[in-house]
Computed example of a mutant assay.
Amino acid sequence: MPETLDLSGDVVALTAAICDIPSVSGDETTLADAIETALARSAQLEVLRDGDAIVARTHLGRSRRVVIAGHIDTVPVTANLPTSFRDAGTESEALWGRGTVDMKGGVAVALHLAATLAAPRWDVTWVFYDHEEVEAELNGLGRLARLHPEWLHGDLAILGEPTNGGIEGGCNGTLRADISTTGRAAHSARSWRGSNAIHAAAPILDRLAHYTAAEVEVDGLVYREGLNAVGISGGIAGNVIPDRCTVSVNYRFAPSATPEQAAAHVREVFEGFDVEVSDSAPGARPGLDALLVQEFVAAVTSVTGGVAGPKYGWTDVARFAELGIPAVNFGPGNPELAHADDEHCPTGQIRSCAAALRGWLTDDAGPDAGTPGIEE
């Protein structure tokens, strides 16, 4: 029997419900089916599906369209489901379990608002997609961008990634590269006959140790870059002088730079060495100079407090940026608890995010979302 979701009830209860439906990457179909069925009950929504990605959108003839998106998959469960509440009824009340932070809280907020806002002041496209926690080529949002780019059209995109209820604009780009040295193999008892490639890697590590990360201002936000060794390999046996060594580095670069510019910078830092870029992804500018983005930031911060900050990690806002859509991250949960065995999210944060987003979409902050007896 298919799972049943109550999208119009309490947003925290909805968060628990979607967390408790198995949805580890590759196993999202049951949750996707439940989401599709629940959204189809809303007459104001056109519901589309590609694989386990569900898109629901309004057609109200508004002057602007906003895309609000979130991934429905999680990393593997580690005895942290079903969900549970701790400190219930207090200000410290939290929902514990896999997905509560990354990112079923944000998904629940979007599902609740999709079903209960019959006439938002902007047209809205709600996107719930699969396979975010695995290889990039499987990413459901990437698949939609390739196969159905018209489904993602909008003037602003909001990704419900955990941000502790604040706004994090854009994201850094990321690049991985292998820096290699070569030597000459020899028996370690006659090491002078060889040339040790691992020893030759010392200057690589020295350059990394003395590297000063740049701080780059983009659209009013300051992004801190980083260049770090994330792995080192070399040698084939305990009695052989290694003839090759590879240091793997990760470069996080500000969204004002292209992957090509990032690669050129890495090659400049490691001039004289063999540099092979293995993977890269562009960042996303926050687009805070866009009027619609400024209105969203002002509306949300008036409810949740704080100011907009940069997203140092890479998120799927970069996919919207590639489509020419300014994008921000906004959702409940501490990102430092994402994927942790003790993953948990304050229930008050889920409610405040729902209230802030609902207030912006209706131009009326109103009472907390999901409270019984409230008409929305």
Rank of each mutant, 00 (worst) to 15 (best):
G305M: 09
T78M: 13
E375N: 14
A69N: 07
A257Y: 12
V124C: 08
T100D: 02
L39H: 04
V247E: 05
A17P: 01
R121I: 15
D316T: 03
S302L: 11
A88V: 12
H148M: 04
V240M: 12
E93H: 09
A114V: 09
A53P: 00
A257M: 11
E135L: 13
L95I: 12
R207K: 15
A69I: 02
S233T: 15
R351E: 10
V12Y: 00
D50Q: 14
T116D: 07
W360C: 03
H131S: 15
G220W: 08
I325C: 03
T182F: 13
P149F: 08
A189E: 12
V107I: 14
S248L: 07
I68D: 00
D274P: 00
V300P: 00
G366H: 06
V317H: 00
T304H: 06
G140I: 04
Q261F: 06
A69Q: 09
L147D: 15
T246H: 06
G366Y: 03
L227K: 03
I374C: 11
Y251H: 12
D342N: 15
A17E: 10
S248A: 14
E46A: 13
R86N: 11
V124D: 02
G238V: 06
S302T: 14
R190I: 12
V269C: 08
G106F: 03
Q261R: 14
L361C: 08
G287Y: 04
G238L: 10
T15D: 03
H265M: 11
H153Y: 11
D123I: 09
V101W: 01
A298N: 13
V11C: 08
L81P: 03
N228I: 12
L7W: 02
G366I: 08
A254K: 01
R351W: 10
T258A: 07
V266L: 08
R224A: 15
N250V: 11
D206Q: 14
A298Q: 15
L175Q: 05
A186Y: 03
A115R: 08
A214W: 07
V240Q: 10
G226D: 13
V11R: 01
C171H: 02
V75P: 00
A88M: 12
A202S: 13
P76N: 09
A356E: 04
D243W: 04
V303L: 07
G235F: 07
G140C: 07
V303N: 03
M1A: 14
L208N: 06
V24S: 05
S63M: 09
M103G: 00
N239L: 12
W126F: 13
P286K: 06
G183V: 06
I21T: 02
L147M: 12
D73K: 01
F128D: 00
A214G: 04
A369I: 09
C245L: 05
I54S: 01
V11S: 04
A34H: 02
E215F: 08
R358T: 08
P326F: 05
G194R: 04
L39K: 02
Y211N: 10
A94L: 06
E137Y: 15
S280H: 14
L361W: 05
